[in-house]
Design a protein around this nucleic acid. Structure first.
Lengths: 162, 162
DNA sequence: ACCTGAACACCGTTCAAGT
DNA sequence: ACCTGAACACCGTTCAAGT
């Protein structure tokens, strides 16, 4: 079967799920695809580009919340999904464009609609996102507690402005 | 000159500062110490143990805040120092014992003194610490904004309890 | 006790060649 | 255009040997 970016990404993800990030090497990946090591390099310039594409794919998997609920519940849903989707990623590879921008746009939109000005929305999103990535998939209770505090603080700011 | 854990850790840190975490290999480290690759293994069982010791040393460098100011400024100082000291560490290696416990004890103490019960203090510390590690050394303004919100939220919780 | 030296089983990546 | 195959310069780590 023909190689493709999709097929390679799928195999890479499977390898990581099975053996962790240390188990992902270009050589093992090629082996898994039943192809010679250098074949993968037709589709990704180097390993770094592959890792970036994997983070990108993970970010794309985050479904954006509907605009029906309050800004608070919208944000909770967005961050909860983000943390689950991106939490496993290796360090400092959490914000690839353009899928990263898609998440940022969604987050900033929610905060702007809530009433924050451009700068506060940007800072608040940075804070919320950094916070969310600090938690693993199974730390629901811990994640929620701090998020409530953060959102309470933001709401107090909104109230002070009104 | 004789090898020692201290001398090895020092050389490792220098290597990382110079070439980043990817530049740190057991072989290059030995070369820098003018010793054969396997000599380092007398002091650290494997690379993982070396990395752990490096994180440990970084955590030890955090100076704990004096108990003079308000709990809020104490916490700000503690987290600011923690983020500067531990921010550069490779992923998921941010909480080694016992230096990690030293930081946790300090943080939990501040929160308990502020009036939080044991469970809330634990959750709040987890939230604050996760938040702090999400910021690089040079992101002072961004870090501070979200921290204010988090602390405001915690204060509201304390006020509601009184 | 502490360091050496060779060896093993891996890496990412280049390059020239095949089809 | 796409894959092969050998090669290069690295890894972490084991093991037996030296001093």
């Amino acid at each position: 079967m023909r190689l493709s970016r999709e097929r390679i990404l799928e195999a890479a993800l499977e390898l990581v799920e099975h053996d962790g990030w240390n188990g992902l090497s270009m050589r093992r990946l090629a082996q898994e695809l039943d192809v010679w090591p250098m074949a993968v390099y037709r589709y990704f310039r180097d390993k770094d580009e592959l890792l970036e594409a994997m983070a990108e794919a993970a970010a794309e998997r985050v479904s954006l919340p509907s605009a029906r609920g309050s800004w608070r519940t919208q944000m909770q849903k967005l961050l909860d999904e983000s943390r689950r989707a991106l939490g496993g990623q290796p360090a400092s590879r959490a914000l690839p464009a353009p899928a990263g921008r898609r998440l940022s746009e969604a987050g900033l939109g929610i905060l702007r609609d809530a009433g924050l000005d451009e700068q506060d929305a940007a800072r608040a999103w940075r804070a919320l996102f950094a916070y969310a990535l600090g938690f693993a998939e199974d730390e629901d209770a811990e994640f929620e507690f701090g998020l409530e505090c953060l959102l309470d603080g933001l709401e107090a700011r909104l109230a002070a402005r009104a």
